[in-house]
Structure formats: structure tokens, C-alpha cells
Design a protein around this nucleic acid. Sequence first.
DNA 1: CTTGAGCCTGTACCAGCTACAGACTCTAGA
DNA 2: TCTAGAGTCTGTAGCTGGTACAGGCTCAAG
Lengths: 140, 140
Amino acid sequence: MKNHHRSVKVLRRGDLAKLTGCNLETIRYYENIGVMPEPPRSSKNYRVYDDRHVARLRFIMRARELGFTLDEVRDLLALVDGGAQTCGEVQGLANAHLASVRAKIADLKRIEHVLSSTVAQCSGDDVPECPVIDALTEVA
Amino acid sequence: MKNHHRSVKVLRRGDLAKLTGCNLETIRYYENIGVMPEPPRSSKNYRVYDDRHVARLRFIMRARELGFTLDEVRDLLALVDGGAQTCGEVQGLANAHLASVRAKIADLKRIEHVLSSTVAQCSGDDVPECPVIDALTEVA
DNA sequence: CTTGAGCCTGTACCAGCTACAGACTCTAGA
DNA sequence: TCTAGAGTCTGTAGCTGGTACAGGCTCAAG
């Protein structure tokens, strides 16, 4: 038992990465841009994390998975940290983000439609005439 | 009549930008990365464009609008320029791209679902309990 | 005591542009 | 003819959201 005088193992950057599945370097990046707090350092200048850092990083990663930008994540975190945050404010951010997600879906659907209807006209043969190229070339 | 000895007005970079709606700097960028050809230069080192440059830039812009990456655009252009291009090859590229567009749509729909169902639980009040924050915080 | 793993820092790189500085040139009006 | 402003030239830096490496320290096991 080497840690008999310290019952809780400290988390270093690599541990945090493994626990969350986040890339090691990304953690430092998040710290640099201010979405992760600067953790305390050990005597040898190693970052020392705890459970709250794990929770915060998971929060960030989940928000990123849902397509929030890092700026939006910062806003969400500020509301969370603010203590005085209200459901209404968070709802506002989430709704704004939802609208942009829906706009992206609409864009991509339009693109999908153009692509699929164009490709459907392809003969797939060795012929030089190609409806895809035509569609791209057309001034329309 | 200043151009009496040259009936066709030459296009400079700004003209090409206006004709296509492309950003002025983007034209130079496309030249640097090799999707636009290096145009001939005037005696004073100004780029001189013609109709074919206009057509090519429109092609690139249309492909970009459809979500092709610049690498994919390069491939498409190589097939177009190759002369021996076949409909089948182009169809292959377009189909691969269509698949990635569909994958993005699926991702975004999943995100939309999570967001909208979460936001729907919001009271929108001044209360500190927020289902959006809960959803982001949950380890799930 | 050595060896490898892990951590530290700063910096460079990716896409796909956009913008700006500083120098040159062209064009239209006075 | 002169001059002011617009256009062009080059290289380079910035943006987002990371990723990756070099060069140096430190730590733990054999």
C-alpha cells in the first residue's frame, strides 16, 4: 500500500482522458480556451483533477455531441455556474440551437434530393455523357 | 473607344468575382490549392481570365454548394478534364457523397429529436430546475 | 540504475476560406 | 498633366475544433 496516507487516488490528465473517452490533448485545449477550468497542480506541476472535472468534461462532450458550438457550450456553462440560472434562459439557448440544427437538416435534404435525382439518371456505363456533370455544369 | 484593337474585354480577378458571386480572395485560394488553373498574366502581372475560367469556377461553386469537399471537387474535375471520363466513375463519386450526406442527415435528426424532446419538458419559468441541463449532465 | 511511460510546454497542422498590410498600377476628373 | 481613389499584386495571419509532434522532466518497475 503506497497510498496509505491518501485514500483517494488523484486523477491526472491521462486518467481524465480514459474516464471520459476524451482525447488527451483536447483536455488541454479546452483549458486553454476556457471551457475547462485550470485545475490545481501537484508539486511537480502535474494537473490534478477530481470528480467535478470529470462531470464537467462529460457535460461538454455531451453538448458537443448534440452539435452545440464551443461558444454555445461556454454560454451553457455560464448559466449552470451562475447558480441564478433559470430554466427559461437555458431553454432559449437550446431552442436557438434547435433552430440551427433544423436549418442544417433542411439544407442537407435539399442537397440529397438534387444528388439522388441526378444520380438516378446515370446509365452507369462507359459512356462520356454524364448527367451529374451536366447538372454541375448547367448555369440553371 | 480604347479597346478598338481588342474587341473582347479581358476579365480580371474582380470581374470574375462579380460574375460568379465568388469572394475575390477565394479565387486566389482555389488557384493556390490547384482547383482553379493558373491564368495567363498581363504585362503588368495581372491575372487574365476568360469564359472557361468562369465556367470552371461556377462548376466548383455548385459542387461546393452540394457539399462536395474540395478534394472531391478535384476528383470530379480530373474526371471532367480527363476526356476519357465515364459516367460510371462520376456516378461512383456522387453516390459516395450521397451516402455521407445521408449519414449527416441521420445524425442531425437524432440530435434534433433529443433536443426537441428535452426542450419540450421545459417549464420556461424562473425556476432553477432545467431538464436541458439535466439531460446534459446525466451520465446515461 | 536504467528504461519506458506519462506529463509538461509551445508550436504547427488540417479544411475552407477571409482579411489585411504594403507595394504597385490603372483610370477618371480637375 | 497631376492626383486621388480603386483595383491588383504578394505573403501572411486569423477563424473553428481540435490533433500531433518535439524536446524536456518526472515517476515507477525491474
